[in-house]
Simulated scan of single mutants.
Amino acid sequence: MSYLWLKAFHIMAIVTWFAALFYLPRLYVYHTLALQEEDSKASERFKIMERKLYRGIMMPSMLAVVLLGLGLLSLNFSGYMQQGWMHAKLLLVALLLIYHFWCGHLLKRFAEDRNQQTHVWYRVFNELPVFLLIFIVLLAVIKPW
Rank of each mutant, 00 (worst) to 15 (best):
S2G: 11
S2M: 05
Y3T: 07
L4D: 08
L6A: 02
L6I: 12
A8L: 13
A8G: 02
H10P: 00
I11H: 15
I11Y: 15
I11A: 15
I14V: 12
V15K: 14
W17N: 05
W17T: 08
F18V: 10
A19Q: 08
A20Q: 12
L21R: 01
F22D: 11
F22V: 14
P25N: 08
P25R: 08
R26E: 08
L27N: 00
Y30N: 07
H31N: 06
H31R: 10
H31F: 13
Q36A: 13
E37M: 02
E38M: 09
D39E: 11
S40G: 02
K41H: 09
S43K: 05
E44D: 14
R45V: 06
F46T: 01
K47Y: 00
K47G: 00
K47S: 03
I48L: 06
R51T: 08
L53A: 09
R55A: 06
R55H: 13
M58V: 02
M59W: 02
M59C: 04
S61K: 06
S61T: 08
A64G: 10
L67M: 15
G69W: 11
L70S: 07
L70N: 07
L70V: 10
G71T: 04
L72R: 11
L72S: 05
L73G: 05
S74A: 12
S74E: 13
L75Y: 05
L75E: 10
N76H: 14
F77K: 15
S78P: 04
G79Q: 08
Y80W: 02
Y80I: 02
G84S: 11
W85R: 15
H87D: 05
K89L: 06
L90Q: 07
L90W: 06
A94N: 03
A94S: 13
L96S: 10
L97K: 03
Y99S: 03
Y99V: 05
H100M: 12
F101V: 03
W102H: 13
G104S: 08
G104T: 04
G104R: 06
H105P: 00
L107I: 00
K108R: 14
R109F: 04
F110M: 03
E112C: 01
N115G: 00
Q116L: 10
Q117R: 07
H119W: 12
H119Q: 11
V120W: 09
W121V: 01
V124Y: 10
V124L: 11
N126W: 12
V130G: 02
V130F: 10
L132C: 09
L132M: 15
I134P: 09
L138Y: 10
L139Y: 14
A140V: 14
I142C: 03
I142V: 12
I142M: 09
K143M: 06
